[in-house]
Amino acid sequence: MNELTASTSPGDILIVDDAPENLRLLSAILKTQGYQVRQSINGQLALRAAQLNPPDLILLDISMPQMDGYEVCKHLKSSEKTRHIPVIFISALDREVNKVKAFELGGVDYITKPFHLKEVLMRVQHQIALHRLQNQLQAQNTRLQQEITERQRAEEEIRFLLTTTKAISKSPDFHAALKITLRYICLMIGWDCGEIWSPNSEGTKLESSIWFVREAKQEALTHPSETFKFAHNFGLPVRVWSSKQPEWIENVLVQDISAFLRSQMGSNMELKTGLGIPILVNDRVLAVLVLFKKTRSQAEQRLIEVVNTVAAHLSEFIQRKKIEAELVVAYKELKRL
């Protein structure tokens, strides 16, 4: 039922009956109470109408040719789009076996012919009100679950930032801080591997000597690896180095297959998503943090901001170490004097 209909009608009802006189009678009864009424003369048309625009309620005749009401109900309940629509069965038959079968197939109520005006309206009103209440509860539960998920994610991000910041502050030097940061990002945020790229002394190329692969054996993680170099205008690390801005690649296999060069093990990992983050000090890129994971995903601004925060802590760490070194030099000068 669309929003316009919901605002002008107490409910949208689909009546399914092969007898035109029954369609006319039920439609007249329901329209007098303001219900939006649609009609189907057979099961196939009813299923199509329910799929195109699911109603709030279906009044379904049992005895129809080709496809009876029981079969129609089976199809309705087997579809994710229509399984939650309440179905009230209609029949001139009033035997107990028919009622049991109707309820077993998912029907919520049962109306017998000839119709009684007050009974029809009471049962219809009750089922629509119940259906809407269930939808409201489902929507509330969905919102609550989203809030819980969001709160859990926020707590995980805070825990990650606190743990990483603490580890960075205890690192003896910048190289060690980069190494522990890369490890924590992969383990705590769920990236499969990553590298740290740094400009060479001449500032003409990027070189990588720090890397981490989450699934590798511990000894492989600490084993020294060969240094790779990126020239200008080549690959994700250089683009981040040049722009001084984060970059997210949704599918590195298509866009930037050359971005990850770390050994045969890395090239066989079928990496999909890539993220590059610059580590800046006084508007100068000291290093580029590059992360990869096997699952393909669109850019997550919140995640980029979290990793950017870690990069800012690394920048502060470098500046603090620089000040500490200058203080040591100054102290030695004072002692010499």
Rank of each mutant, 00 (worst) to 15 (best):
L4M: 06
A6W: 07
S7E: 06
S7L: 14
S9K: 09
I13L: 10
V16Y: 07
E21I: 07
R24W: 04
S27F: 04
L30G: 11
Y35A: 00
Q36N: 13
V37K: 14
L47T: 08
R48T: 06
N53V: 00
L60C: 11
D61V: 02
D61P: 05
M67V: 11
G69W: 05
L76C: 01
E80I: 00
T82M: 08
R83F: 03
V87G: 02
F103W: 06
G107P: 07
P114A: 00
H116C: 03
H126R: 13
H126I: 07
R132Q: 14
L133D: 14
Q134V: 07
Q134P: 11
E147Q: 12
E147N: 04
E156A: 11
L162P: 00
T164I: 09
T165G: 13
K166H: 12
S169M: 05
P172M: 00
A176I: 06
A177F: 08
L178T: 10
K179N: 14
T181E: 03
R183M: 10
I185R: 03
C186I: 13
I189F: 02
I189V: 08
D192Y: 01
C193N: 08
E195K: 01
S198E: 13
G203D: 07
S209H: 15
S209V: 15
W211F: 04
W211D: 01
E215T: 04
E215I: 00
K217Y: 15
K217M: 09
L221G: 04
T222F: 05
H223M: 06
N233P: 01
P237L: 07
V240W: 05
K244L: 14
Q245I: 06
E247M: 11
V252M: 01
R262A: 01
S267R: 13
N268F: 00
T273C: 01
G276V: 12
I277V: 06
L280I: 04
N282R: 14
D283N: 13
L286V: 09
V288I: 10
V306T: 10
V306H: 00
T309M: 12
A312G: 05
H313N: 08
F317L: 09
K321W: 06
E324K: 05
E324G: 02
L327E: 11
V329Y: 00
Y331F: 03
L334D: 13
K335H: 12
